[in-house]
Design a protein around this nucleic acid. Structure first.
Lengths: 335, 335
DNA sequence: TTGAAAGCGCTAACAC
DNA sequence: GTGTTAGCGCTTTCAA
């Protein structure tokens, strides 16, 4: 069933059918009804490919993330998919892992599929080395690229971020003021956002004349899901003679690992040992006591990101960067 | 840059360019190289919409799930996306929630977008009432529909499931044999798969001459993420005078809630109280002690599902239903 | 082995 | 307010 069949059965031209289909105003109520009747009777729906060919868009946005099963990224993807749909767009999902090469390849794929825009979910898409970010700038030559929780200064690239520096800075300060001075910052990423967080920790510590040297900044490399291994990392640190009674984690998983470590050591939390997480994910409710964690307002970020993208697609001038602040959700792992 | 430009620059016809593009055999090595050179020089890539119009496919699969931020469903979506990409297909993601109407709407949308197939991730897509499943059978009239962890007998619908009945049956039996007889089954879904699980529990209990009445089968309605509320549900049950020292949960979240309840009651786990979860998700590692949970081999299921879909798309006869068995991963919450 | 030409089903400029 | 027609960029017969 094509537009020709409908036009024939309705006794009008294909142009009229097309007008009805696209809600054009210049059609008399009478013919409109006539056409609509035929369309409904035959359950006709226009061919999306033909339409795409003519309009050069199929109202699809490419959504890339390292790993859509990661608790935090999954939430991001979820919100974004919802809000895109609300705006009449579909989401083409691409899980790329954390390496550069497959990401660049995925980008090419998306652009060849003629998506109207690309959204990168997660700060890990922006690398430290400037030249590694060429793949983003290149893609932005073709379609707008939106970064969730990452920043990159390039034409047609837009960023919506949470103020990670300030959030971690605040959490660290609070922990210090609660009377703990031997704090370890525990992280597993070197992305732009991760660097901001680290800087927030260091700033707060130094401001309070506390050491924030290599030993207090613990980088964990390994699976993002292997909590026992993360706990083991802290145990080894302790065994090396480093003493600490507080952990600021860059992620709820790492915070949970810190909690596991504390329990293994026989510390009671939060009396002897404090832990602060990040993301305020489901995990924060899983432990006993429940995790103090920083909520970075992911849904707000996503909402804003989609708003910005829609603006860009409509040809409006939109802000290149928007910053929201996070909020500490205090629960049982801090005093 | 179109196929015409390339054909002109290469001094051949568009048909030849098309042949080269599609790896047709009937092109001399010499012209092939000539065309390929031009293509590379101009970085030409064919227009996907035009191609879609001609071939009537853009190699895209619709992936529906209730909520891609749900820990379990997210893993499913993740594996499926990966394996589809390995086979040269893209994933159009649709998060539909748990209601029928938006699901039927999403299906129409996907079909109108001319996806080559539809995958439903999660047992919740199949409803108890037969007529509510018409939306699936209808969609299957247009494209193959694959069900992950759900079953529906209709033409062009294929199921890949884990044997939930046997898994729960086994877990229940084991708990009984460990010396616990007052066991509560704790669940939050009435999907087909959920019913199988429930049946597994009831079968094991009755076989051991234990009661599996209304009080031992606790249905929790409410947010799938609100662990404290779930724990509260069990607390209320206890306050009503129901005594129980074991919980078989249909989900790791519910199991964690049971653990929280046990802790609130001052039970020590697993000495006084046993808990068994389901899905063997990240959550199983979060608690102390870690959760005994049933691994339903999600990745294997997904792998098989995609294999079946690819077979169907290639016109092969494929099995309508495939069953894998689960495996109990014993950790610290059971004796 | 190659080329010419007829679609694929729609949109939109233009004419009436 | 409605119809005619020229694309959009590709695939695929059919001839040569």
């Amino acid at each position: 069933m094509t537009i020709y069949d409908i036009s024939e059965k309705a006794g009008v031209s294909i142009a009229t059918v097309s007008r009805v289909l696209n809600g054009s105003s210049n059609v008399s109520e009478k013919t409109k009804k006539k056409v609509l009747d035929v369309i409904r009777r035959y359950e006709y729906t226009p061919n999306a490919f033909a339409r795409g060919l003519g309009l050069n868009t199929m109202k699809t946005i490419g959504v890339m993330c390292a790993d859509s099963s990661d608790l935090y990224l999954a939430k991001g993807v979820y919100y974004i998919e919802q809000k895109l749909r609300d705006n009449g767009y579909d989401s083409l999902l691409c899980c790329t892992g954390y390496e550069l090469a497959p990401r660049a390849a995925a980008m090419d794929l998306l652009i060849n599929k003629k998506v109207d825009g690309i959204i990168l979910v997660g700060s890990n898409f922006v690398y430290e080395k400037e030249s590694d970010n060429r793949y983003i700038a290149d893609a932005a030559l073709q379609v707008p690229v939106m970064l969730l929780n990452a920043e990159l200064d390039a034409p047609n690239v837009y960023s919506v971020v949470s103020d990670d520096f300030t959030s971690i800075y605040g959490a660290t300060l609070e922990m210090i003021q609660s009377g703990i001075s031997d704090i370890v910052y525990f992280y597993n990423s070197t992305s732009y956002s991760a660097q901001k967080k680290l800087a927030g920790f260091v700033a707060a510590m130094e401001e309070q004349k506390l050491s924030a040297g290599a030993e207090s900044c613990q980088f964990y490399r390994g699976s993002h899901e292997d909590i026992p291994a993360m706990a083991e990392h802290l145990k080894k640190l302790h065994d090396k003679g480093v003493s600490f009674h507080g952990v600021i984690a860059s992620d709820d998983t790492l915070a949970l690992a810190a909690l596991k470590y504390a329990r293994q050591m026989g510390f009671s939390v939060p009396e002897d040992f404090s832990v602060s997480g990040y993301n305020n994910s489901l995990l924060a409710m899983c432990s006993e006591p429940e995790l103090t964690s920083i909520d970075n307002k992911l849904e707000t970020l996503c909402q804003h990101l989609i708003g910005t993208l829609m603006g860009v697609l409509n040809g409006n001038e939109m802000p290149k960067k928007t910053v929201f602040s996070g909020e500490t959700i205090k629960r049982g792992t801090t005093r």
